[in-house]
Design a binder for these strands. Structure first.
Lengths: 215, 215
DNA sequence: CTTGGAATGAACGGAGCCGTTCACTAACCT
DNA sequence: AGGTTAGTGAACGGCTCCGTTCATTCCAAG
């Protein structure tokens, strides 16, 4: 009637399988990224990461002397290497594709964790992350935008001089701003508005008189 | 030889003058803003504010049941009411004036404290601040930009339809982004670049065909 | 002057987290 | 099989901060 002892032992507890080496590090990195998303860097704690990764604090401290080191390594290991520039044949479509890709990247787990760090980049406690954020996020974003503009220049669609740092900064700035102030995804409609209302006018603006050097 | 007891008592300790009512609240608000700037909201602590304001925690808790209430009141009390639109007679100069004013506001003590909160606006712990930030910072910024665009429309310089939410968001977005990623002040040169390379092209862009409604 | 309320500093028990240590044991290698 | 290394969970002493309480004292008002 009861089906034996096996049926009675339905309430079993999760058994922690010991991981070692790279498998453990991967679990720790995942826990670290989740912790960054949930609490930000300010309240990031080694103890919480160890608990989430189902390991001991000693295992963390054997590898990373501080939370700063752990976060640097977790982000470094997770951030994508480079962005592939699209090649649609039109500047508008390329820009839409880049923004789509950046927006998707920013809403990924790694992207959310990185945004948490970016949010704190002007605090001294996040000083160690400035280089990483520029090198692995902001500069690559600039680069892929510049690549699509260059392709447009080659097609005779745009003027390279229009793609100033200020114009290029608008893309990450707006993605971050909207992510902060309007919870939710940067939609395709948002992307179209940004491209049509801001970026294309900026990139296709007439060259200024020579005395008017831009910044 | 020793000049008497008075000379020996050179090592005196600061005497705390008791404040009461509004004067104490002012001191607490100032300490709260400084604490926001130094640590952000995540690590904002009532104990640190009490210590900085040279008062007891009980005095804080008599008035504010939580750090959230205190921060709401401190920001509310400190943020400026409205921004006066400039009237230079030219859209470009008006935009430069608005950006200058917004930039100055953002680097003030209250502005820095508000930016700390804005940085955390997408965390659930900052949910209570969303309304205040929109109402007292973001919406007024939009409004003053809209006011200068309207004046330009009246002068025949611009088309009101070009001043979409996306275009207007570029200003706070860029100020916040540059403040975060390029420590230091948003310079007048930066303001000119933003106006000439991004805002004017966007605001003076030709109206799109009617089917192309922007966001 | 007296009175009552508010301010100040100290203390409390508790929670969270730190960095470290340790006993036990799983995992790996020979 | 044995030996070694690394992982796990617990514990430690210490620190910060919480919300609360309390004794003392200041201060404004009557």
């Amino acid at each position: 009637m009861f089906g034996g002892e096996q049926g009675m032992r339905r309430t079993t507890y999760p058994v922690v399988v010991r991981r070692r080496g790279p498998a453990l590090e991967q679990a720790i990195f995942e826990a670290a990224l989740e912790q960054l998303i949930a609490t930000g860097y300010a309240r990031f704690s080694m103890e919480a990461v160890a608990a989430a990764a189902q390991t001991g604090k000693a295992s963390l401290y054997r590898r990373w002397g501080s939370k700063e080191q752990l976060v640097l390594d977790a982000l470094s290991a997770s951030l994508p290497r480079a962005l592939e520039p699209p090649d649609t044949g039109s500047l508008r479509a390329d820009l839409l594709a880049v923004i789509g890709a950046l927006s998707a990247a920013m809403t990924s787990r790694t992207g959310c964790a990185a945004r948490a760090v970016i949010s704190e980049l002007d605090h001294e406690r996040a000083a160690a992350f400035v280089g990483l954020i520029h090198k692995q996020i902001l500069d690559p974003a600039h680069l892929v935008l510049l690549q699509v503009v260059r392709a447009a220049v080659d097609r005779g669609e745009a003027d390279l001089e229009a793609a100033t740092p200020m114009v290029l900064d608008v893309v990450p700035a707006m993605l971050l701003y909207r992510g902060k102030t309007q919870q939710g995804r940067f939609t395709e409609e948002d992307a179209r508005a940004l491209v049509d209302q801001v970026l294309l006018p900026a990139l296709l603006r007439p060259a200024p008189p020579p005395e008017d050097g831009g910044g």
